[in-house]
Amino acid sequence: MGAGHAHKLYRHARSPVHALPPHCKIAAVFCFVLVVVSTPREAVWAFGLYALLLAAVAGAARVPASFLLRRLLIEVPFVAFAVLMPFVAGGERVHVLGLALSQSGLWGAWNILAKGTLGVAASVLLAATTELRALLLGLQRLRMPPLLVQIASFMIRYGDVVTDEMRRMRIARESRGFTARGVRHWGVLARSAGALFIRSYERGERVHLAMVSRGYAGTMPVIDELNASRAQWTHAAALPLAALAVCLTGWMLT
């Protein structure tokens, strides 16, 4: 596993969660989120328990709460959407502080907020404890088509290179006294985007040549084998199984 291969969300640490094989973690997070999404929204307490479960995982992974909360900001546009719901949804109205709010809209807002937040939190935990390369290997291990994994790894490898080219083009524009201020400057920006596409595509062709020169024939050689022991699978399964228990209880009680 390549050490130091960090991306924006990854937090390097040694913890039982970091040590789990990536495909176990991906599968666990996916199942967890699926369980959360299937929980009836009326079982308010269940979502509290889910949050506690995630907090326990975060604790085990030594991910500080502040880090987790800051990353939840990505959800903000949907919070706005959820806040809107009680106003636009139909059905029975309840009066709160002089506002007529739709009851089903309130439930809907709660539903989106609770499930969306838990989903983002679970994904953030996954990304915070798993290296980029490991995520890709994990996806491959979970039978994602190899070609798709290859495309994704090329995207990750060259994302920085292409972004950097874009940055240099901006600096070049600004050094010659051009700063885009309005719609009338879009033409110049679009030409930069076009040039960026051409450069990226041509780089793709060069990368292909370099690969073929080293014996590439359509499949990536397997360099790292991933294997998970039964114990590791059991550890990873703890989260979704606990959530499933909560969910089933929720269904029985409501």
């Binding site: 390549g2 291969h5 060069r206 040549l209 370099a210 080293r214 360099i223």
Partner: peptide, 29 residues
Amino acid sequence: RRVGIVFQDPDDQLFMPTVREDVAFGPAA
């Protein structure tokens, strides 16, 4: 395998996520 070409732009040549995997690419293929 017998002809090793080093291209001008190393970013074109180093396409794998880590140095080790990149060096391993040719022999593994």
